[in-house]
Protein backbone atom coordinates (compact mmCIF):
# COMPACT_ATOMS: atom_id res chain seq x y z
CA UNK A 1 0.00 0.00 0.00
CA UNK A 2 1.15 3.47 -0.83
CA UNK A 3 2.16 5.76 1.98
CA UNK A 4 -0.49 8.35 2.72
CA UNK A 5 0.38 11.93 1.99
CA UNK A 6 -1.86 13.26 4.72
CA UNK A 7 -3.61 11.45 7.50
CA UNK A 8 -5.53 13.52 10.00
CA UNK A 9 -7.70 11.99 12.67
CA UNK A 10 -9.77 13.55 15.40
CA UNK A 11 -8.65 17.10 14.70
CA UNK A 12 -10.11 19.79 16.94
CA UNK A 13 -9.24 23.47 16.74
CA UNK A 14 -10.64 26.04 19.14
CA UNK A 15 -10.12 29.71 19.85
CA UNK A 16 -10.43 30.65 23.49
CA UNK A 17 -11.54 34.22 24.08
CA UNK A 18 -12.43 35.29 27.58
CA UNK A 19 -15.02 33.00 29.08
CA UNK A 20 -16.18 31.14 26.03
CA UNK A 21 -14.35 29.15 23.41
CA UNK A 22 -15.13 29.03 19.70
CA UNK A 23 -14.68 25.55 18.34
CA UNK A 24 -13.83 26.14 14.69
CA UNK A 25 -12.95 22.57 13.70
CA UNK A 26 -14.63 19.56 15.32
CA UNK A 27 -13.42 16.00 15.16
CA UNK A 28 -12.23 16.10 11.55
CA UNK A 29 -10.76 13.09 9.75
CA UNK A 30 -8.98 13.43 6.40
CA UNK A 31 -6.88 11.11 4.25
CA UNK A 32 -5.02 12.03 1.11
CA UNK A 33 -2.97 9.88 -1.23
CA UNK A 34 0.06 11.37 -3.01
CA UNK A 35 -1.06 13.34 -6.05
CA UNK A 36 -4.65 13.43 -4.90
CA UNK A 37 -6.77 16.57 -4.96
CA UNK A 38 -9.06 16.83 -2.00
CA UNK A 39 -11.59 19.63 -2.00
CA UNK A 40 -13.02 21.08 1.16
CA UNK A 41 -16.36 22.69 0.53
CA UNK A 42 -18.49 24.68 2.88
CA UNK A 43 -20.09 28.01 3.56
CA UNK A 44 -18.33 30.99 5.06
CA UNK A 45 -17.35 30.44 8.68
CA UNK A 46 -17.52 26.66 8.47
CA UNK A 47 -13.87 26.36 9.51
CA UNK A 48 -12.17 25.67 6.18
CA UNK A 49 -9.34 28.18 6.59
CA UNK A 50 -8.80 27.14 10.17
CA UNK A 51 -8.51 23.52 9.10
CA UNK A 52 -5.98 24.42 6.42
CA UNK A 53 -3.89 26.60 8.72
CA UNK A 54 -3.86 23.98 11.44
CA UNK A 55 -2.07 21.58 9.11
CA UNK A 56 0.71 24.17 8.83
CA UNK A 57 0.34 24.90 12.55
CA UNK A 58 -0.22 28.54 11.72
CA UNK A 59 -3.61 29.17 13.32
CA UNK A 60 -3.95 32.58 14.89
CA UNK A 61 -2.98 32.65 18.52
CA UNK A 62 -4.40 32.07 21.02
CA UNK A 63 -5.70 28.81 19.68
CA UNK A 64 -5.62 25.19 20.64
CA UNK A 65 -5.00 22.47 18.06
CA UNK A 66 -5.57 18.91 19.19
CA UNK A 67 -5.69 15.69 17.22
CA UNK A 68 -5.40 11.96 17.64
CA UNK A 69 -3.18 11.74 14.62
CA UNK A 70 -1.67 14.20 12.17
CA UNK A 71 0.77 12.55 9.80
CA UNK A 72 2.21 14.17 6.71
CA UNK A 73 4.22 11.94 4.39
CA UNK A 74 5.56 9.87 7.26
CA UNK A 75 6.22 12.85 9.54
CA UNK A 76 4.27 13.25 12.73
CA UNK A 77 3.19 16.90 12.60
CA UNK A 78 1.57 16.68 15.97
CA UNK A 79 4.86 16.22 17.77
CA UNK A 80 7.09 18.08 15.35
CA UNK A 81 8.71 21.10 17.05
CA UNK A 82 8.38 24.57 15.52
CA UNK A 83 11.84 24.33 13.93
CA UNK A 84 10.80 21.22 12.08
CA UNK A 85 7.59 22.91 10.93
CA UNK A 86 9.64 25.83 9.58
CA UNK A 87 11.63 23.43 7.44
CA UNK A 88 8.43 21.92 6.12
CA UNK A 89 6.54 25.11 5.40
CA UNK A 90 7.05 26.44 1.92
CA UNK A 91 9.09 23.36 0.97
CA UNK A 92 6.95 20.26 1.40
CA UNK A 93 3.68 22.00 2.19
CA UNK A 94 2.90 25.41 0.80
CA UNK A 95 -0.11 27.60 0.78
CA UNK A 96 -1.95 29.95 -1.53
CA UNK A 97 -4.05 32.47 0.33
CA UNK A 98 -7.51 33.71 -0.45
CA UNK A 99 -6.82 37.35 -1.14
CA UNK A 100 -3.55 37.96 -3.00
CA UNK A 101 -3.77 41.69 -2.34
CA UNK A 102 -3.26 41.21 1.37
CA UNK A 103 -0.87 38.28 1.20
CA UNK A 104 2.18 40.19 0.00
CA UNK A 105 4.21 42.67 1.96
CA UNK A 106 3.02 45.99 0.55
CA UNK A 107 6.42 47.69 0.68
CA UNK A 108 8.64 44.99 -0.76
CA UNK A 109 9.23 44.20 -4.44
CA UNK A 110 7.64 40.94 -5.51
CA UNK A 111 10.92 39.40 -6.60
CA UNK A 112 12.41 39.79 -3.17
CA UNK A 113 9.40 38.10 -1.62
CA UNK A 114 9.55 35.26 -4.12
CA UNK A 115 13.20 34.56 -3.42
CA UNK A 116 12.44 34.33 0.26
CA UNK A 117 10.61 31.08 -0.36
CA UNK A 118 13.74 29.49 -1.82
CA UNK A 119 16.37 27.88 0.36
CA UNK A 120 19.84 29.37 0.72
CA UNK A 121 21.73 29.51 -2.54
CA UNK A 122 23.25 31.70 -5.20
CA UNK A 123 21.12 34.74 -5.93
CA UNK A 124 21.40 34.36 -9.68
CA UNK A 125 20.22 30.79 -9.61
CA UNK A 126 17.36 31.63 -7.29
CA UNK A 127 16.30 34.46 -9.58
CA UNK A 128 16.46 32.17 -12.55
CA UNK A 129 14.26 29.63 -10.84
CA UNK A 130 11.76 32.28 -9.80
CA UNK A 131 11.57 33.68 -13.34
CA UNK A 132 11.07 30.22 -14.76
CA UNK A 133 8.25 29.53 -12.36
CA UNK A 134 6.62 32.87 -13.08
CA UNK A 135 6.49 32.07 -16.75
CA UNK A 136 5.11 28.62 -15.99
CA UNK A 137 2.17 30.14 -14.17
CA UNK A 138 1.56 32.39 -17.14
CA UNK A 139 2.63 35.74 -15.79
CA UNK A 140 3.43 38.07 -18.66
CA UNK A 141 6.53 40.23 -18.42
CA UNK A 142 7.95 38.29 -15.50
CA UNK A 143 11.32 40.04 -15.55
CA UNK A 144 9.70 43.41 -14.98
CA UNK A 145 7.22 42.15 -12.40
CA UNK A 146 10.08 40.95 -10.21
CA UNK A 147 10.83 44.60 -9.48
CA UNK A 148 7.20 45.66 -9.13
CA UNK A 149 5.40 46.33 -5.89
CA UNK A 150 2.25 44.29 -5.14
CA UNK A 151 -0.21 47.15 -5.56
CA UNK A 152 0.82 47.69 -9.17
CA UNK A 153 -0.46 44.26 -10.25
CA UNK A 154 -4.04 43.14 -10.75
CA UNK A 155 -5.55 40.57 -8.41
CA UNK A 156 -5.34 37.83 -11.01
CA UNK A 157 -1.69 38.53 -11.78
CA UNK A 158 -0.83 38.68 -8.10
CA UNK A 159 -2.54 35.36 -7.54
CA UNK A 160 -0.34 33.88 -10.26
CA UNK A 161 2.71 35.24 -8.47
CA UNK A 162 1.55 33.67 -5.23
CA UNK A 163 0.96 30.36 -6.95
CA UNK A 164 4.45 30.54 -8.43
CA UNK A 165 5.82 31.28 -4.99
CA UNK A 166 4.02 28.28 -3.53
CA UNK A 167 5.34 25.99 -6.25
CA UNK A 168 8.96 27.15 -6.19
CA UNK A 169 10.10 24.22 -4.10
CA UNK A 170 7.89 21.65 -5.78
CA UNK A 171 5.86 20.88 -2.66
CA UNK A 172 4.28 17.52 -2.05
CA UNK A 173 1.16 19.22 -0.78
CA UNK A 174 -0.30 22.50 -1.95
CA UNK A 175 -3.00 24.07 0.16
CA UNK A 176 -5.12 26.54 -1.77
CA UNK A 177 -7.53 28.48 0.41
CA UNK A 178 -10.29 29.80 -1.86
CA UNK A 179 -7.70 31.00 -4.36
CA UNK A 180 -10.28 32.51 -6.70
CA UNK A 181 -12.85 33.97 -4.33
CA UNK A 182 -11.28 37.42 -4.26
CA UNK A 183 -10.92 37.58 -8.04
CA UNK A 184 -13.18 38.81 -10.82
CA UNK A 185 -15.31 36.12 -12.37
CA UNK A 186 -13.53 36.58 -15.69
CA UNK A 187 -10.15 35.89 -14.09
CA UNK A 188 -11.35 32.98 -12.00
CA UNK A 189 -11.65 30.55 -14.89
CA UNK A 190 -8.06 31.19 -15.94
CA UNK A 191 -6.74 30.50 -12.46
CA UNK A 192 -8.80 27.31 -12.16
CA UNK A 193 -7.40 26.08 -15.49
CA UNK A 194 -3.93 26.92 -14.20
CA UNK A 195 -4.50 24.80 -11.09
CA UNK A 196 -5.77 21.90 -13.19
CA UNK A 197 -2.65 22.06 -15.38
CA UNK A 198 -0.17 22.49 -12.52
CA UNK A 199 -1.70 19.64 -10.60
CA UNK A 200 -0.94 17.31 -13.51
CA UNK A 201 2.53 18.73 -14.18
CA UNK A 202 3.74 18.69 -10.60
CA UNK A 203 1.89 15.58 -9.52
CA UNK A 204 1.42 17.09 -6.12
CA UNK A 205 -1.31 16.59 -3.60
CA UNK A 206 -3.69 19.50 -3.42
CA UNK A 207 -6.01 20.53 -0.63
CA UNK A 208 -8.35 22.81 -2.47
CA UNK A 209 -10.71 24.91 -0.41
CA UNK A 210 -13.75 26.43 -2.01
CA UNK A 211 -17.36 27.19 -1.44
CA UNK A 212 -18.16 26.65 -5.09
CA UNK A 213 -18.98 23.07 -6.06
CA UNK A 214 -18.74 24.06 -9.71
CA UNK A 215 -15.05 24.79 -9.31
CA UNK A 216 -14.53 21.67 -7.25
CA UNK A 217 -16.08 19.46 -9.91
CA UNK A 218 -13.35 20.44 -12.34
CA UNK A 219 -10.42 19.79 -10.02
CA UNK A 220 -11.12 17.39 -7.20
CA UNK A 221 -10.75 13.65 -6.84
CA UNK A 222 -12.43 13.62 -3.45
CA UNK A 223 -14.64 16.10 -1.67
CA UNK A 224 -15.20 16.79 2.00
CA UNK A 225 -18.24 18.90 2.79
CA UNK A 226 -17.83 21.00 5.90
CA UNK A 227 -20.41 22.66 8.03
CA UNK A 228 -20.00 24.32 11.40
CA UNK A 229 -16.57 22.83 11.87
CA UNK A 230 -17.56 19.27 11.04
CA UNK A 231 -17.25 17.17 7.95
CA UNK A 232 -20.78 16.13 7.13
CA UNK A 233 -20.08 14.25 3.93
CA UNK A 234 -16.90 12.82 2.46
CA UNK A 235 -16.44 10.88 -0.75
CA UNK A 236 -15.31 10.81 -4.35
CA UNK A 237 -16.28 13.77 -6.45
CA UNK A 238 -18.50 11.67 -8.70
CA UNK A 239 -20.33 10.14 -5.80
CA UNK A 240 -20.85 13.46 -4.05
CA UNK A 241 -22.07 15.20 -7.15
CA UNK A 242 -24.32 12.39 -8.31
CA UNK A 243 -25.58 10.91 -5.07
CA UNK A 244 -25.29 13.47 -2.32
CA UNK A 245 -26.56 12.02 0.92
CA UNK A 246 -26.47 14.90 3.33
CA UNK A 247 -29.16 17.56 2.86
CA UNK A 248 -26.54 20.28 3.23
CA UNK A 249 -24.61 18.87 0.29
CA UNK A 250 -27.75 18.91 -1.83
CA UNK A 251 -28.32 22.46 -0.75
CA UNK A 252 -24.79 23.39 -1.87
CA UNK A 253 -25.38 21.64 -5.20
CA UNK A 254 -28.45 23.69 -5.84
CA UNK A 255 -26.50 26.81 -5.05
CA UNK A 256 -23.87 26.09 -7.71
CA UNK A 257 -25.41 27.49 -10.90
CA UNK A 258 -22.58 26.53 -13.18
CA UNK A 259 -22.91 22.84 -12.49
CA UNK A 260 -26.13 22.26 -14.37
CA UNK A 261 -24.81 23.50 -17.69
CA UNK A 262 -21.19 22.46 -17.70
CA UNK A 263 -21.38 19.02 -16.17
CA UNK A 264 -23.56 16.49 -17.91
CA UNK A 265 -22.90 13.88 -15.25
CA UNK A 266 -25.31 15.45 -12.83
CA UNK A 267 -28.44 14.02 -14.20
CA UNK A 268 -30.22 12.28 -11.39
CA UNK A 269 -30.53 14.95 -8.85
Amino acid sequence: MQRRLLDVQGLNVSFPSGQETTVAVKDVNLQMQPGETLAIVGESGSGKSTLALSILKLTHKPSSVQALRMMFDGTDLLHLPERGMQKLRGKDISMVFQDPKTAFHPMMPLGKQLLEALPQGRRREKRQRALEMLSRVGLPDAERQMHAYPHTLSGGMLQRVMIAMALLNQPKLLIADEPTTALDVTVQAGIIRLFARLKRQFQMGMLFISHDLGVVAQLADNVAVMRQGQIVEYGSVERILQHPVHPYTRHLLQMAPRLGGTLPMIGGR
Binding site: L56, L58, S94, E116
Partner: peptide, 28 residues
Amino acid sequence: LQGRTFIQAAYAVGGTKWKVIIFHVFPY
Protein backbone atom coordinates in the same frame (compact mmCIF):
# COMPACT_ATOMS: atom_id res chain seq x y z
CA LEU B 1 0.38 42.83 12.44
CA GLN B 2 0.30 39.29 13.80
CA GLY B 3 -3.14 38.74 12.34
CA ARG B 4 -2.30 40.19 8.94
CA THR B 5 -2.19 37.82 6.01
CA PHE B 6 1.16 38.97 4.66
CA ILE B 7 2.81 38.19 7.97
CA GLN B 8 1.13 34.80 8.03
CA ALA B 9 2.26 34.27 4.43
CA ALA B 10 5.83 35.00 5.49
CA TYR B 11 5.59 32.19 8.02
CA ALA B 12 3.91 29.97 5.44
CA VAL B 13 7.00 30.02 3.22
CA GLY B 14 9.10 28.82 6.12
CA GLY B 15 10.06 32.08 7.83
CA THR B 16 11.33 31.95 11.39
CA LYS B 17 10.07 34.37 14.00
CA TRP B 18 13.22 36.48 13.82
CA LYS B 19 13.31 36.48 10.06
CA VAL B 20 9.72 37.66 9.91
CA ILE B 21 10.36 40.37 12.49
CA ILE B 22 13.50 41.66 10.80
CA PHE B 23 12.48 41.42 7.15
CA HIS B 24 8.73 41.98 7.32
CA VAL B 25 7.56 43.59 10.52
CA PHE B 26 10.40 46.02 10.88
CA PRO B 27 10.41 47.44 7.33
CA TYR B 28 6.66 47.80 7.56
